[in-house]
Nucleic acid binder design. Structure first.
Lengths: 233, 233
DNA sequence: GCTCTCTTCCGTACGGTGTATCGGTATACG
DNA sequence: CGTATACCGATACACCGTACGGAAGAGAGC
């Protein structure tokens, strides 16, 4: 597992192959199959192992819910950035919840204790924050790749984009790209600001009549799902 | 491209292979390489083709910024749910911005015209909303897989989770899981509610002193990146 | 010591992948 | 007519996950 995590950290998810791990261990490929059934199991174990890095010592968890959830989410982001293969795994294939992931979820709920929400509402809050964080990290990883492509060797992408957005069809995007301030805000800034927006909205919703609050929350909280058309499978 | 998109829609990203596409077309594998250089190029073309489905007719774009961005984001989510392989692609590998993706971005900026933001601020708003949507869709796809695993054939996951969360270490998560209300809220509800929170936060930030507003925005908008520790690579 | 069983290791092989190379054919043009 | 160009296709290579079956060693019972 350690060998596989090391390979993943340095060379990406695609480089994690049975033969590669075995070589790293001085063994042959098939030897690994005496310890695991399928490669998928190994990936699940790796994921849960790394997720343990997200766990905050309970003593260090701030009492204020906003600080607490911010700290956890920041840590989550950093761990995913440190192990990009985990990010790829989450988007690429389902990953089963292991013990550490459950502990992490429990800790998120604990962080929200101060809000006084009922269980399902707290789950929704955690979900929204996690979804935002996940999207951020995925985009950051993509941008890092794109940036690396541009800096290392051929920087064909930027002129291509500039040429594409030259016409009058891009009255907003074109000047922005040309001003060079497009990718300027650091990923941290974007992440932190969006997180603040989201938490602002959540905070405003708590205690608001018709918003999130006690065990009985209705009104805006319960949406008519017929709005969106597609039922979930 | 149409053949590849069809295969991806019905059998997932992993099933999109050169030989598979060629068979679908009644040709041999290597024949495809007279039209494309690498498989990656084909995937990029497929992605941009599908992204065109996200574009809203300009006449139908609501004047109110909130309605407009909500409509676009909802459509984005539905398209990603309709073509799960695109979601996988975004998380799994970088995908280069094609013309349609640029048009989409331009349209997002247009939707925010009513807010009166300067360019970089608008980009940040679009980014935050997109990140949230992306995280939602990815989690939805994972959950759909997990759900399908449980409903079709062996439902081993749920008892496993219940057993794991039985101890006193899970005072919040355990009862929630046992109450059966864990996955109850529909994906639409979760998506819509989180989006409202985020837009609430953004709306509150606009015009607030020190928040988002005119061309000159400072204060909370510009965060000290030293808070987060890790520099971006 | 001998045998029996069990765990671990590993060589081989199968069917899959992307694609480099090269040879063949059909069409268009001077 | 010759030739250039575009397309098709067969083969081959290196890689992947893994099914199968055999070899080597450890421990137990006699």
């Amino acid at each position: 597992m350690a060998a596989a995590i090391e390979i993943g950290d340095t060379e990406g998810l695609a480089a994690i192959s049975i033969r590669r791990i075995a070589a790293h261990l001085g063994a042959r490929a098939m030897s690994l199959y005496t310890h695991i059934d399928r490669k998928e199991d190994l990936l699940d174990l790796m994921a849960d192992e790394v997720i343990s890095e997200i766990l905050v010592a309970d003593a260090e968890l701030p009492a204020d819910w906003r600080e607490a959830i911010t700290r956890i989410t920041r840590l989550e982001r950093q761990v995913l950035l440190r192990h990009p293969w985990l990010t790829e795994m989450i988007g690429f294939q389902r990953f089963s919840p292991g013990p550490n992931r459950l502990h992490h979820l429990e800790q998120c709920l604990k962080a929200l204790d101060g809000l006084g929400l009922d269980g399902p509402s707290a789950i929704r809050v955690v979900g929204a924050v996690t979804h935002y964080m996940l999207g951020c990290v995925i985009r950051e990883a993509s941008d890092a790749d794109l940036h690396r492509d541009r800096c290392g060797g051929h920087d064909e992408k930027l002129p291509y984009l500039l040429a594409l957005t030259e016409g009058p069809e891009f009255p907003r995007l074109g000047p922005l790209l040309r001003a060079g301030s497009f990718v300027k805000p650091s990923p941290e800034q974007r992440f932190e600001q969006g997180l603040e927006w989201l938490l602002d909205g959540i905070e405003a919703s708590v205690g608001k009549p018709g918003g999130l609050g006690g065990p009985a929350h209705r009104g805006r909280t319960t949406l008519d799902s017929s709005q969106t058309g597609t039922g979930d499978s």
